[in-house]
Computed example of a mutant assay.
Amino acid sequence: MSMLKRTPLFPVYAEHGARVIDFGGWELPVQFLGIQKEHDAVRQQAGLFDVSHMGEVLIKGADSLSFLQNLTTNDVSKLEIGQCQYSLMCYPNGGVVDDLLVYKLGEDNYMLVINASNIDKDIDWMRQNLTGNVELTNVSDETAMLALQGPHAEQILAKVTEAPIQSLKTFRFLQDVNVSGIQALVSRTGYTGEDGFELYIDKDDAIKLWNLLLGAGQHLDLVPAGLGARDTLRFEARLPLYGQELSKDISPLEAGLSFFVKLDKGDFIGRDVLVEQKAKGTPRKLVGIEMIERGIPRPHYAVFADGKQIGEVTTGTQSPTYKTNVGLALIDSAYSAQGTEVNVEIRGAQVKAKVVATPFYKRKP
């Protein structure tokens, strides 16, 4: 058995009672205090996540913009320095290589943040499509990343830096921020449905920053949070997870991400198929479902209607916020209208559910 990878923060997990699991080849905490407690803390106060397993790739050179425009679905030309965007990389068939964030660090200077389990595959894909004057550097192993999420996040971070984070808008970032002596890139995106910040730092500063933030947040009910709460939080906010709502067999349009696919920006990999899908309509759609009868929809559970299988659940659980049994399901578009009754196969029995609006949770302004 191959050794699991560990982030620079692995040594502190045990101090906080973490239960670790194998997550895509990484030994990561699924929970510290418990998923429900961590979920509630992020919704109501704040949670601190170790997301150092994520990948970071630097793209530099005179042809960086044209390279990224061809590689990704969103319009990179619209970015200003200090701004980032959510985007996707597609295969020629319209399926998704990965979803990612694109940061504009400077002219002809970008950082891509990619999913941990896809790092090698993504970099191979980028290199296969590399043209012109572009330098690609994988800095994942040298970089640690902490995510501070929740209503108290701004107040906590303001205690340890004099940088103007209060005026930092969503999907913007500050470079060379001094966080009590630690140099960080600080962005305001989030993957929980709440306000929050990501701090990118040198791996050697990870434990110091972790302890610093927990100390700053101890009177504001900040808790360490694991992958379990990260998944329930992003799911309630209808944020996709690669391998579930997105894959090589699921297009961004099927997943309801057309806003991040700019078909009018010029050519990019997968565009022809996506243009056709847009014109004809996708045969499948990602929808929200809520159980009418008792049962919890889980990933890969089959969904039926009119006596035939029409798709499957991609993510499902009991919502920690609302205690409803809900899921996301990729199903035939003919059954995607809200209120449509479907059946989810749970342990051999077909259990009644209905198509509902998403996101399941939306933060109040």
Score class of each variant (00 low, 15 high):
3 M>I: 09
16 H>A: 06
27 E>V: 00
45 Q>I: 01
47 G>N: 09
53 H>G: 06
56 E>T: 07
56 E>D: 13
58 L>F: 12
60 K>P: 00
65 L>Q: 11
78 K>S: 11
78 K>I: 03
79 L>K: 00
80 E>F: 02
82 G>A: 13
88 L>A: 08
101 L>D: 01
102 V>C: 08
111 M>Q: 11
117 S>N: 03
122 D>G: 03
139 V>C: 06
140 S>F: 10
148 L>G: 06
158 A>T: 03
167 S>K: 13
172 R>H: 15
174 L>V: 05
178 N>L: 03
182 I>A: 12
185 L>Y: 04
187 S>G: 08
193 G>S: 03
198 E>Q: 12
200 Y>W: 05
200 Y>S: 03
201 I>N: 10
202 D>K: 08
206 A>C: 06
211 N>R: 14
221 D>S: 14
224 P>C: 05
225 A>G: 07
225 A>R: 05
230 R>W: 11
248 K>V: 06
249 D>H: 10
257 L>K: 14
259 F>M: 05
266 G>K: 05
278 K>T: 04
281 G>S: 11
282 T>N: 13
285 K>N: 12
289 I>T: 06
293 E>C: 03
298 R>G: 01
306 D>I: 00
313 V>E: 13
313 V>D: 09
327 G>H: 10
331 I>H: 14
335 Y>A: 05
353 A>G: 06
358 T>F: 14
362 K>T: 11
